[in-house]
């Protein structure tokens, strides 16, 4: 992926299997968020391939699709800097996530035939169930902007879940959280994998969280993959230590 003369992501082969939790780590500016933006259609990659193989369907190349199409195909993401709909309530935020799974159009809105009413009611119930799962049900009618910080981050996850993804992309979900909130997040992610059947790709700087959660870890620096492996392998990889701590620490 190039921005003018800057190559932000260069040669990154990354694979995620069904039901895995994979972490993508690297110093600031390594190109992790850019990589997410390429996958989810916000940028069109200047080179390379992105393929998905949703459970029960055939492989599809998704380069250059619009973000909403990518989401419909089952990839959902959160943002590093929180991007909630602040003037909408918590429930309405999640209902926007349901949007692409609902069908009613203008005639439905105007005439409100029974199936539209039913669909809307179902959407409300589904959204509420998701909030219950994430533990946000007591905020259901609050405006998103009035939520505590940790809850806003979890609301982003809830909103992403509402699109029924098979792969959840989390961009620094623990950023700015206190240790207690981080621990809750750890539990939440594990629970999601169990109950929701999603694979998770996670960008995170909190090493404790990364090491305890991930099945595999990819490390990138200056847009390139410099290492991949299990948490144990990564911990002892000289290239990784060099990238994070500098040359002199590699002893």
């Amino acid at each position: 992926m190039d921005f003018g003369g800057l190559r932000a992501v260069d040669r990154l082969d990354l694979e995620i299997h069904c039901g895995e939790i994979v972490a993508l780590i690297g110093p600031n500016g390594a190109g992790k968020t850019t990589f997410f933006n390429c996958i989810t259609g916000i940028y069109t990659p200047t080179a390379g391939d992105i393929r998905i193989h949703p459970p029960g369907r055939e492989t599809k190349r998704i380069n250059g699709l619009k973000p909403n199409r990518v989401t419909e195909l089952g990839l959902a993401r959160t943002f590093q800097n929180i991007r909630l709909f602040h003037q909408m309530t918590v429930l309405e935020n999640v209902m926007i996530g349901r949007h692409c799974r609902l069908r009613s159009g203008i005639p439905g809105a105007v005439f409100r035939p029974p199936h539209t009413v039913k669909e809307e009611r179902q959407a409300v119930m589904d959204s509420y169930r998701i909030l219950e799962k994430i533990g946000l049900e007591r905020f259901v009618n609050d405006l998103a902007k009035n939520l505590p910080y940790g809850a806003q981050r979890r609301l982003e996850i809830a909103r992403a879940l509402a699109t029924e993804p098979f792969l959840l992309l989390l961009d620094e979900p623990a950023a700015g959280m206190n240790p207690h909130e981080t621990h809750e997040l750890d539990q939440l992610i594990l629970r999601l994998r169990e109950t929701e059947n999603v694979s998770i790709l996670l960008i995170e700087h909190d090493m404790k969280l990364v090491m305890s959660l991930s099945d595999r870890i990819y490390v990138m620096d200056y847009g390139r993959k410099i290492a991949e492996g299990t948490p144990r392998q990564i911990k002892n990889d000289p290239a990784v230590i060099k990238a994070y701590l500098g040359e002199e620490y590699v002893a």
Binding site: T40, I42, K66, N68, H99, R101, T163
Partner: peptide, 17 residues
């Protein structure tokens, strides 16, 4: 409403802009 608040997030949530 969502589009008014944040176009990118809105698209990423599956709304056809």
């Amino acid at each position: 409403l969502a589009l008014r608040e944040d176009e990118i997030a809105c698209q990423a949530m599956g709304v056809d802009k």
